[in-house]
Amino acid sequence: MVMTPSIFLNFLFPPPPSSFVTTMSVIGISSLTCAGYLESKGMHMRYSKFVNEGVTKIKSEIKFSSRTGMLLFYTPAFLGGLSSFHVFPNHDLRFMLLASALTVHFLKRVLEVLFLHKYSGSIGLESAIVVILSYTLSTVTMIYAQYLSRDFPNPQVDLKYVGVGLFLIGITGNFYHHYLLANLRKEGDKEYKIPKGGLFDLVICPHYLFEIIGYVGVACISQTAYAFAFTLGTVFYLMGRSHATREWYLTKFGDSFPKDVKAFIPYVF
Rank of each mutant, 00 (worst) to 15 (best):
V268Q: 10
F257W: 04
A244T: 02
T103Q: 09
G69V: 05
V218T: 10
V216R: 07
L102K: 06
N90S: 15
K118L: 11
Q156A: 15
D255H: 03
L180V: 11
G54T: 13
H207S: 08
N90V: 09
R109Q: 13
T22K: 14
G81L: 05
K252Y: 01
H117Y: 00
Y37D: 06
H105R: 12
F200H: 14
K186N: 10
Y249S: 03
S25P: 05
C34Y: 09
V216A: 07
Y37A: 15
L184R: 14
G121M: 07
L12P: 03
F106E: 05
K59Q: 11
S30G: 14
A225F: 07
F228H: 01
N154T: 11
P5T: 01
L116G: 00
D201H: 09
F269N: 08
I62K: 15
G36Q: 12
L38H: 14
F20N: 04
H117A: 05
L125G: 06
P89A: 10
S222E: 00
M1I: 07
V26E: 06
S256R: 15
F85E: 05
P5N: 06
L166N: 05
Y147P: 00
S19H: 00
G121A: 12
P5A: 09
H91L: 14
D151V: 04
S19A: 08
I213S: 08
V87E: 09
P266L: 04
Q223D: 03
I204Q: 08
T172H: 03
F253Y: 05
L107Y: 05
I265K: 11
K259E: 10
F50V: 01
T136P: 10
G124T: 09
F200E: 10
S66T: 07
L133M: 14
Y176Q: 15
P258Q: 08
M3S: 13
I27A: 15
L232A: 15
K193L: 05
K108L: 06
L166F: 07
T4D: 15
G214F: 00
F152E: 12
G80T: 06
R46K: 04
N154D: 12
F257H: 06
P17T: 11
H44C: 14
G69E: 02
E112R: 04
P258F: 03
L32I: 08
L93Q: 14
M43W: 06
W248L: 01
S138V: 06
Y249N: 01
H86G: 09
R109I: 02
D201R: 12
Y215I: 08
S19N: 04
G165F: 04
